[in-house]
Design a protein around this nucleic acid. Sequence first.
DNA 1: TATGCGGATCGAATCGTTTCGATCCGAGCC
DNA 2: GGCTCGGATCGAAACGATTCGATCCGCATA
Lengths: 357, 357
Amino acid sequence: MSASARPTLALVAERAGVAISTASLAFTANGPISEASRNRVLAAARELDYAGPNPLGRQLRSGRSGIVGVVIGDQLKRSFRDPVAVQVLDGLVSTLGAAGLGVLLIPGIPGVDADSRAVDPLIESAAMDVGVLVWGVRTDDPTLAAFERRGVPVVVGEGREVPGAPIVSIADRRGTADVVRHLTSLGHSAIAEIALPLDHTRRSGPVDAARLAQSDRTPTSNRLAGVRDVVEPVITWEPAGPLVEHGKEAAITILSGDDRPTAIVAHSDLLAAGALLAAQELGLKVPEDVSIAGFDGLDLPWLAPAVLTTVRQPLAEKGAKIGEAVVNLLAGNAPESVELDVELVVGTTTGPPREAV
Amino acid sequence: MSASARPTLALVAERAGVAISTASLAFTANGPISEASRNRVLAAARELDYAGPNPLGRQLRSGRSGIVGVVIGDQLKRSFRDPVAVQVLDGLVSTLGAAGLGVLLIPGIPGVDADSRAVDPLIESAAMDVGVLVWGVRTDDPTLAAFERRGVPVVVGEGREVPGAPIVSIADRRGTADVVRHLTSLGHSAIAEIALPLDHTRRSGPVDAARLAQSDRTPTSNRLAGVRDVVEPVITWEPAGPLVEHGKEAAITILSGDDRPTAIVAHSDLLAAGALLAAQELGLKVPEDVSIAGFDGLDLPWLAPAVLTTVRQPLAEKGAKIGEAVVNLLAGNAPESVELDVELVVGTTTGPPREAV
DNA sequence: TATGCGGATCGAATCGTTTCGATCCGAGCC
DNA sequence: GGCTCGGATCGAAACGATTCGATCCGCATA
């Protein structure tokens, strides 16, 4: 009656009348085993309702768990409301899945106090073969240190150099410069900037030089730099978050002021979409009264008939490249970093400023 | 030079001059061990750069992996663009994280052929203590069968009964009836319905009785039934997907026809938001020309100044309840199903039909 | 008939822990 | 001083598989 325990390979072997090692061969396709014994083993397995080797035993022996820990570095809710994150993750999960690897979701910094040295306990105690820091590492990142201590190799998406770890990044500085150059070449000089959040504090408002220097997120810093490669924005606004509503809020303030800029460049499409809604609400024509450009190249059909001018980045491909880097690392190859290219896509939301007409 | 192998507990014990079992006690807080030996062990660990017991060994011994497999049943990209899914997942991940459990993401049906009996290989071979089928089970679900074969207990979100598995569901049939009743009590009788997708085929168009019977997704079926508890819709439209653009597409057709309905009830807020955009594009006033209601209770600030009439369901709480059910199951308690309540929230998008004014 | 060969099978070691029962030791008590 | 008691420590046995070297068997060859 206490037969609730799952059958083991030993039981199957006994029933089939072979040694455990032979039974093992029947399940791992590659060993030398006769058709006859394989069938006997499989039959015995069926009779005992044995569903294949227990992963835990296999993992201990082989030293591999087949699991990749992915640190998304924030509350799920916040990360996944951002389509950029979702697309990258999608590419990553597909690639890893195809390689037989599973994704363990690691929220990252637990709770609000992202300053503390606390690390998600999963990083310290869950079994994994590789860790992925999708959104880059911060200086002196405790997460990175924890992985290192455990001897878990790491792949970094989008970030500063980490010795021994491959980085998959995107040419976002150049892309940002491209879109700003597009604006200046149309004749704009009073360009406002809506930045991505500079850090985890949900602060919002205009950004001064001191605050600018505090940015510890790589994509944000790169895009700030990209803008400044071409022009000094008349104002840089830091929104409370990365979503549409935050962009709208920022743009309302920017566009309501006395010296209305002739163009807004946002660090992301979601923020730009918010700016578009703001302009609409304020009765401003786009692009006649104000040009608006974004970054990401998302598909935002609900903006129709407007088509956002933006910079398309290969998001799913980025995820896929990270996945490849993981597989590569597990195969024992040397880490290899990649930078993916971006492309300016001109839509209907940018045009020459009114004065220039 | 070949010292690349990670140190083991045995090494630490040797260095500390204690038995392996004693060293083990130093890491698991609860055993009887003197302060002195614990310190000696921890010191030795530090010297050897030992980062704590290897999870694989621990897992094999205890028979627990601390991992919960969550089947999201679709491409990540599609699931996670839906804020409903994201909020539930967020609640789930938080609850499980607090219990020290990790979430293994299982896409579910690989590739497009969702009809086949194929199952995500992770379900067959990854280590996990419990499986979660977030979006319910279909009749004769191969995924469910695979879990059963492996002896992995299962928790089901939103679905039909599964013997021995707790179900966490939401009173969506009653909620849908409530919102439709709200419309009829305003005087509407010509009500159109935009349904959630009936199955995985990305079919779209008007739905007849035969097609209606084919719906194999529980939330969809429940909401279809909820509408019919109150009124027979003048038309039911099946969109190609669950997102804003799909709702817009559907509504454009519905509202362009000759017998324009006076109200549209959508199975979700995203679809309803699409309908709102459609009405706007067609120059129709909401709610004067057409009332629009949704379901979910999402926060959609970019619809402002409109506030959608909808039915609020406790999404994060649903995820949390699923998490609790998992923890409960692991504690050896009997499975316990829950049905969560919903609440009608009247916004500015519904009002009496023009004729009735 | 003896020898050699190659493929199938087997036994035993191993992966790194936890846990359980046994041992050991010092303190307290009579 | 002998005895008991209890807490700290230890050894060994799992946990469930893979893998490697050794054995075994049958067949072909000399």
